[in-house]
Design a protein around this nucleic acid. Structure first.
Lengths: 232, 232
DNA sequence: TTCCCTATTTGCGCCAGCGCAAAGACAAGG
DNA sequence: CCTTGTCTTTGCGCTGGCGCAAATAGGGAA
């Protein structure tokens, strides 16, 4: 199996610990607790008191949020070098989302006092976190805007592009989104239903834009998809 | 019997400069430029290079974002003690939104080098900003979730409640949302159309939940509205 | 291989909500 | 007072997309 990373994650280069030396980071990591997660296992649940915040070392977590009716929306996927739940820990609240591993995943967790101590000792961390959070805020606002103003099919196209950028690996025959990705997940991410996603992917497959199988999507014509998402 | 509705802005008590002494703040403010805005005047436009970030001293700004098709979504309203565009300034990008005054508004602006200097001299500012931004992220994510999973009328109800909390003033006959608020604005905020907003408000007026006039909304039965927004 | 479980597809009916268009209401300034 | 421009209401038709239900397909385990 080849692993080529033509598509890299921008956050990876602008992560919470950038600007710290290797030694510093090693010391920070040693203050946390490491953990390995199986696919489909849950790291923490929305509504539980936020004991720890986590850094993903390897693998991928899916962050979802439920409303009162119990319906689910995918907030984002996070990968190596990204953090989650720092929010909740700093504010001393409950976890605002549920985090579930979609592949074997390795994390490091810090509890509240430890993390606050780290931030206090290394103000650079707070500034870095600010930058990261601002990027997320931008992304969510962007998605919010799309959800307001765009048709379902456009939103599905954008979702695929987002996943492509974030978890795409280039193969001979287009760009494969390299995580187990059900129609339901795409729907949760795009704010629609699995039926509509299925119908849309089928249509795009006929156009030759994508190839999709069980929990797999490969984008064979990114350009067409981009154009579709942007214009009309 | 009547429970007191806390109509105060949480961010106002947790603002970017909390934890600094009066003298410190006075010195920071003196480094910035003050400005007075007429209603409907524009402080900055989405897409312009972000020269300065701003603190609202008095009045209220409406932050909106356009998509390629030129349709508008309201991101948020901000009031006294709140900041905007710190994002763009820190990242050295263009303004991600357009800011327009909805009432006579007084702001203080800092340019990039000055603000970076301030953050460097007072790390507390970075930490405070982090908290504020996290709150906004939460709110946007919450709204995103609502937009995904809730019916239009529920979203309108939540929008009114949000505006009520943020800009409500208690009067003899219910809580008045004390900003010029057109049906179109409510629609942009809720992710629907002015027609639907109009029809919905008319229905609620018949129920005695609200009273509305030209660019004014008064909530006469907050409890009913809350219940409607929450449950189903 | 076969069984079983889960994911996916697709036909079909239906309705919430969009948006045009036209009329009505309100505010400000002659 | 009337005029003008903007905001709001409401009738009406239409359609995007939801979601049930049932058939189909993959993939893992034994």
């Amino acid at each position: 199996m080849e692993k080529e990373l033509a598509i890299k994650n921008p956050i990876e280069t602008a992560n919470v610990f950038s600007g710290l030396t290797e030694q510093h980071f090693a010391r920070l990591a040693s203050r946390g607790q490491h953990d390995n997660l199986q696919p489909k296992s849950t790291l923490f649940r929305q509504g539980d008191p936020a004991q720890k915040c986590f850094l993903v070392r390897q693998g991928r977590l899916k962050l979802t949020k439920l409303n009162e009716a119990g319906k689910e929306a995918i907030i984002r996927y996070i990968g190596p070098a990204e953090m989650t739940a720092a929010v909740a820990v700093i504010k001393g609240m409950d976890y605002p989302v549920t985090a579930e591993a979609v592949e074997p995943t390795e994390v490091t967790g810090w509890d509240k006092p430890t993390f606050l101590r780290l931030m206090h000792d290394h103000p650079q961390i707070a500034i870095n976190m600010l930058r990261v959070v601002l990027e997320r805020l931008d992304e969510v606002q962007q998605r919010y805007l799309e959800l307001c103003n765009e048709a379902v099919e456009q939103r599905i196209a954008r979702t695929l592009m987002r996943l492509m950028r974030h978890a795409g690996s280039r193969t001979q025959d287009g760009i494969l989104i390299d995580i187990p990705l059900s129609r339901q997940s795409i729907a949760d991410y795009s704010g629609t239903t699995l039926y509509t996603v299925s119908r849309t992917l089928t249509a795009w497959e006929r156009n030759g834009w994508v190839q999709s199988g069980r929990e797999r999507v490969r984008i064979t014509n990114p350009h067409a998809l981009v154009q579709f998402a942007e214009g009309s």
